[in-house]
Amino acid sequence: MKKTFLILLATIAITACKEDETQVQNPGTLNLTFENVIDDTTLNLGDSYINSSSETYTINELKYIISNITLTRKDGTLEIYPQDESYFVVNEADANSKSIQLNGIEAGDYTAITFGFGVDPTKYPIESGTLNFVPTAEETGMLWTWSAGFKFILLEGDYTSQTVTESSPYLIHVGSHGANLDNYRDITVALEAASSNTDFTIAEGVNASQTILFDVSKVFDGANTISIDNKPDIQVDPVNAPLIATNISTAFAAQQ
């Protein structure tokens, strides 16, 4: 008895596919480490730093979301890490959160890594696998519960300026708000091989590793200058949030 069925159980199929895809031949592992810095020095929560607007600021809390990881092979083809396993919260206060282990990467030579800052708000949540990231985002305070959205970066601390002489709190929460305010950014950094005449190789059984530096000072001083005093509370901000997102898009670099 032969029967034809239109099977729409897409999710099951897709989930299973993702599991299959990770079973590549000669899978290798890439350990990514995120290191938050101010200019060239390792960030210390609570230390004072100065921005170009002559404001002295501390960072008491720093978290951001990394997503949608893709590696570029030497031949230009892409290795797309399973999207629904591709959401991470990097929290300065939690050392574990700063290293991300990517398993099941096809062995080979790679030139670059691309990742998302935040969560791509244009993608359908089922398609992009963000729904299962909700509990993590919630537990780390990165869920904008009132809008069912995500904070892409949470940066909080205290500051003084020429006009604000008493240490005062500032707060920067940049995320997306529907399709109107899209602060998601794709960021690509080159992978750095041990020496300039070798390739960045991921091989079976060997853990390749790469440290990615996030220069937090660029939040204030990148392509755009953000004075804290100008707006010490940036949340749903159609003017400043995109400026900050643009600054952040050039704040990541591979450690040489």
Partner: peptide, 26 residues
């Protein structure tokens, strides 16, 4: 059966709809 469907759908270009012709998946 679901495993089989998944297996088949991976080979297909169309992830949304997969037409399956097989015995015994009633």
């Amino acid at each position: 059966i679901l495993g089989f469907i998944c297996f088949l759908s991976c080979g297909s270009d169309n992830e949304d709809y997969t037409l399956i012709e097989e015995e015994g998946i009633e």
